[in-house]
Amino acid sequence: MRDPSEILAKYGAEEGLIKPSTRVYQVDASRIRELVQELVREYGENRVFVSTIVGIDRPQDGKIEVDIFIEVLGFKPAYCIKVLVPRDDPRMPSIVDILPSALVGELEAHDVLGVVFEGNVYLRRPVFVPEEIASKGAYPLRKDFKV
């Protein structure tokens, strides 16, 4: 069975390491579904799940970084799939129909940073953020949001 890094390398360049052992691959948003489908095909849906989705605001680059940490049972470290979406229109395809474990990560990234996961029928606001903040259309984890 192939190492997950071989499949990941087909879809994006390796971008180094998050300490202590998580390898990062930058993948274009348009190819993310294809990549996840291949992972599920290779290892089966009983071995692949999304550990967490980390959204990071990068106003200096005009981007929002969406890091999807994927776990493949039987292979030790988690893998990080890094997707960059434009900050003024942060959209990317949802993977929740392929990997249901992505649900909470997508809900959270949408709620706190405004990333729209196209195709996720469960997306809503507010999920965690208080109603008074969500109703103003503000996203608390964006760097320009003042507490």
Partner: peptide
């Protein structure tokens, strides 16, 4: 088991 893993 498959559901437990699939849903994380």
């Amino acid at each position: 088991p498959v559901d437990a893993v699939k849903h994380g």
